[in-house]
Protein backbone atom coordinates (compact mmCIF):
# COMPACT_ATOMS: atom_id res chain seq x y z
CA UNK A 1 0.00 0.00 0.00
CA UNK A 2 2.74 2.37 1.00
CA UNK A 3 4.70 1.70 -2.17
CA UNK A 4 1.68 2.33 -4.35
CA UNK A 5 0.94 5.62 -2.66
CA UNK A 6 4.46 6.79 -3.38
CA UNK A 7 4.02 6.06 -7.07
CA UNK A 8 1.04 8.41 -7.41
CA UNK A 9 2.23 11.65 -9.02
CA UNK A 10 1.90 14.66 -6.77
CA UNK A 11 -1.05 16.77 -8.00
CA UNK A 12 -0.22 20.29 -9.11
CA UNK A 13 -0.72 22.50 -6.11
CA UNK A 14 -0.72 26.25 -6.31
CA UNK A 15 2.06 27.53 -4.12
CA UNK A 16 1.04 30.61 -2.17
CA UNK A 17 3.15 33.61 -3.05
CA UNK A 18 3.52 36.79 -1.06
CA UNK A 19 1.15 39.52 -2.22
CA UNK A 20 2.94 42.42 -3.89
CA UNK A 21 3.00 45.50 -1.65
CA UNK A 22 0.49 47.46 -3.76
CA UNK A 23 -1.84 44.51 -4.31
CA UNK A 24 -5.46 45.03 -3.33
CA UNK A 25 -7.88 42.13 -3.26
CA UNK A 26 -10.85 42.37 -5.63
CA UNK A 27 -13.89 42.01 -3.39
CA UNK A 28 -17.38 41.37 -4.67
CA UNK A 29 -20.08 42.59 -2.29
CA UNK A 30 -23.46 40.89 -2.68
CA UNK A 31 -25.73 43.40 -0.99
CA UNK A 32 -29.38 43.28 0.02
CA UNK A 33 -31.31 46.14 -1.56
CA UNK A 34 -33.00 47.02 1.71
CA UNK A 35 -30.09 47.14 4.14
CA UNK A 36 -26.48 46.76 3.00
CA UNK A 37 -27.02 48.48 -0.35
CA UNK A 38 -28.81 51.31 1.46
CA UNK A 39 -25.95 51.46 3.96
CA UNK A 40 -23.45 51.75 1.10
CA UNK A 41 -25.50 54.66 -0.25
CA UNK A 42 -25.47 56.32 3.14
CA UNK A 43 -21.71 55.82 3.39
CA UNK A 44 -21.59 57.89 0.20
CA UNK A 45 -23.78 60.65 1.60
CA UNK A 46 -21.44 60.74 4.60
CA UNK A 47 -18.35 60.58 2.35
CA UNK A 48 -16.90 57.67 4.32
CA UNK A 49 -13.92 56.36 2.37
CA UNK A 50 -13.25 52.66 1.87
CA UNK A 51 -11.22 50.57 -0.52
CA UNK A 52 -12.06 51.23 -4.18
CA UNK A 53 -11.50 47.57 -5.02
CA UNK A 54 -14.97 46.61 -3.80
CA UNK A 55 -17.62 45.97 -6.49
CA UNK A 56 -21.26 45.85 -5.51
CA UNK A 57 -24.07 43.66 -6.83
CA UNK A 58 -27.57 44.50 -5.63
CA UNK A 59 -29.80 41.58 -4.69
CA UNK A 60 -33.47 41.70 -3.70
CA UNK A 61 -32.45 39.84 -0.53
CA UNK A 62 -29.24 38.04 0.38
CA UNK A 63 -31.43 34.92 0.44
CA UNK A 64 -31.35 35.17 -3.36
CA UNK A 65 -27.67 34.18 -3.24
CA UNK A 66 -26.70 30.67 -4.22
CA UNK A 67 -23.44 29.06 -3.12
CA UNK A 68 -22.84 28.61 -6.81
CA UNK A 69 -22.53 32.37 -7.30
CA UNK A 70 -19.85 32.52 -4.64
CA UNK A 71 -17.94 29.62 -6.18
CA UNK A 72 -18.23 31.19 -9.62
CA UNK A 73 -16.76 34.44 -8.32
CA UNK A 74 -13.79 32.66 -6.77
CA UNK A 75 -13.31 30.49 -9.82
CA UNK A 76 -13.16 33.59 -11.99
CA UNK A 77 -10.51 35.25 -9.86
CA UNK A 78 -12.39 37.38 -7.36
CA UNK A 79 -10.37 37.42 -4.13
CA UNK A 80 -13.17 37.85 -1.63
CA UNK A 81 -16.95 37.76 -1.51
CA UNK A 82 -18.74 39.95 1.01
CA UNK A 83 -22.34 38.87 1.57
CA UNK A 84 -24.03 41.79 3.26
CA UNK A 85 -27.64 41.83 4.29
Amino acid sequence: MQAKAQETPTPAVEVPVAAPPDWEPLVLAMACHYCAFAAADLAGVMRLAYSPSVRIVRLPCTGRLDHYHVLRAFERGVDGVFVAG
Partner: peptide, 18 residues
Protein backbone atom coordinates in the same frame (compact mmCIF):
# COMPACT_ATOMS: atom_id res chain seq x y z
CA UNK B 1 -21.89 58.32 -7.25
CA UNK B 2 -22.96 57.18 -3.76
CA UNK B 3 -20.99 53.95 -4.01
CA UNK B 4 -18.08 55.28 -6.04
CA UNK B 5 -17.13 58.94 -6.53
CA UNK B 6 -18.36 59.99 -3.10
CA UNK B 7 -16.40 57.32 -1.25
CA UNK B 8 -13.25 57.12 -3.37
CA UNK B 9 -12.53 60.83 -3.88
CA UNK B 10 -8.88 60.32 -2.91
CA UNK B 11 -8.28 57.65 -5.55
CA UNK B 12 -9.75 58.89 -8.85
CA UNK B 13 -8.10 56.28 -11.07
CA UNK B 14 -9.30 53.37 -9.01
CA UNK B 15 -12.71 55.01 -8.77
CA UNK B 16 -12.82 55.23 -12.58
CA UNK B 17 -11.91 51.55 -12.83
CA UNK B 18 -14.67 50.70 -10.37
Amino acid sequence: RNQCSWVHAAEPEKATKK
